[in-house]
Amino acid sequence: MIEVNNLCKSFGSKVAVDDLSFKVKKGEVLGFLGPNGAGKSTTMRMVTGYFPPTSGEVSICDINMRTHPEQAKAKIGYLPESAPLYDDMSVKGFLKFTAGIRGLAGSDQKDAVERAIETCFLQKVAYQSIDTLSKGYRHRTCLAQSLLHDPEVLILDEPTDGLDPNQKYEVRELIKRLGESKTILFSTHILEEVEASCTRAVIVDQGRIVADGTPEELRNQSGKDSLQELFRQVTTLDTAA
C-alpha cells in the first residue's frame, strides 16, 4: 500500500509538487498522467525515498518513509525515468549486484535473477555488456532490476518508454498481471495504456491532482467519452502557462 499525504516539493522558488495526496491499495494499479513537467517524476522520487519532501508524509505498507527509510525502501521496486545502469557491467552481473543489495544470496539470488531475465525477455543479452545495449534493452534491464526481490510495491516511471510495440504490449500485460497481487504506481504519456492496465488513474497538472477516477469514470467526466478530451480540458497548455 502507498499512502501519500499533503506532499509538497519546491526547488528554490519553483513549486514542483503542490499538496498532493493519494492512496494506492493492494491489488490496485494507479496510472499517473500529466503533461511534461507536471511533477510526476518528482512525486515518484519522494515516494521512493530518493529525496525528502519539502513537507508532507509518505508511507509504504504503513511504514513511514521519513522515520524508517530502509524498511520502507525494502518494500519497493523502482524503475527511474532515465533507466540508470552501470555501464561497465554485464546484464547478468548488474542483476546479481542488485539482488545482492536486496539481500538475496546463493540459490535465491540465482533464481531471482533467472526469473527477472525471463520476465523481461533478456535471455539474448544476459552476458552482454550494458554499454552496448540498445535503448529498449537498457530499459528492460532496469525494469528487471525493479522486479528482482518480488516487491510488494512497484513504482515505474514511464515503463514503456522506448520499447517496441511487442514489448509495450508485454509490459502492459505484466503490469496488469502483477497488479493483481501488488500495489503499482506508474506514469505514462500513452493514454491507451491507462485503459489497458490501470484500475484507477489520476491526472496531475502543475503539481496538483486535477482528475481522479477509474478510466471509465474519467472518460465519462470528459463528456465526450474520451480520455484524450479530458486530458486536454483539465491540463494547462505549455503555451498558455
Binding site: 525515498g49 523502482y78 540508470p84 552501470y86 555501464d87 543489495i101
Partner: peptide, 14 residues
C-alpha cells in the same frame, strides 16, 4: 553523471 545515484538512493541501504 549516469544517474545511478538515483538507484543507490532508493536501495534499502544507508
Amino acid at each position: 553523471r549516469s544517474n545511478t545515484i538515483e538507484l543507490l538512493g532508493t536501495f534499502p541501504i544507508s
